[in-house]
């Protein structure tokens, strides 16, 4: 990935440095650093991980072990819209699986994956904490409650 300048005027590496600094260069804050980097860049690009390893003076494999252990991290670019479909117990007993299957069919991908045009990423998650409203689908942070397979196409239309 070429080093480019962000809208804020900082290069990507400078932005990462800023994040690391906000965590006081602490190795123990690795998870928080990766979370912030992912929030900024939408995924964890390899060159940035290398940079973090250098800055914190820890082996790159330690970063990879953390980045691959926790579900929250993704090493592949994500789509413009991240769709999280809940398969927590409450959503499961109300038919969450059928919703996920319908999403997969409409998008032509299997969860967790991203469409080729980088528009949609689909992931099945375990409980989004809105269990009373299940089945729940969250798109880029917006909640959609009581979803049935039939409502899926209507939701996708809202995110073009």
């Amino acid at each position: 990935m070429p080093i480019t300048t962000m809208p804020t005027g900082l290069t990507e590496l400078e932005k990462v440095d800023e994040i690391i600094e906000s965590h006081y260069w602490e190795e123990s804050a690795l998870i928080g650093i990766l979370q912030d980097v992912q929030r900024e860049f939408n995924y964890l690009p390899r060159p940035l991980l290398k940079h973090i390893a250098q800055r914190l003076d820890i082996p790159l494999n330690r970063i990879y072990s953390v980045a691959t252990f926790y579900r929250a991290f993704t090493l592949k670019p994500r789509g413009k819209y991240t769709i999280s479909a809940c398969l927590g117990t409450a959503c499961h007993v109300r038919g969450g699986k059928r919703v996920v299957e319908e999403l997969e069919r409409r998008l032509g991908i299997k969860a967790p994956d991203t469409t080729n045009d980088l528009k949609y990423s689909l992931q099945a998650v375990n409980c989004l904490g809105a269990c009373a409203l299940g089945p729940v689908v969250v798109v880029n942070g917006e909640y959609h409650a009581q979803i049935t397979p039939k409502k899926v196409s209507g939701i996708l239309k809202q995110y073009q």
């Binding site: 602490e26 190795e27 123990s28 804050a29 690795l30 998870i31 928080g32 979370q35 072990s65 953390v66 252990f69 926790y70 579900r71 929250a72 991290f73 375990n126």
Partner: peptide
């Protein structure tokens, strides 16, 4: 500290490892 989305991190010793920035 924000969790990383691993169920096992609710377990006490795993949670503390996670607080230390480990898996």
């Amino acid at each position: 500290n924000r969790g990383g989305g691993a169920f096992v991190c609710g377990e006490s010793s795993a949670l503390m490892a996670s607080l230390e920035g480990k898996i």
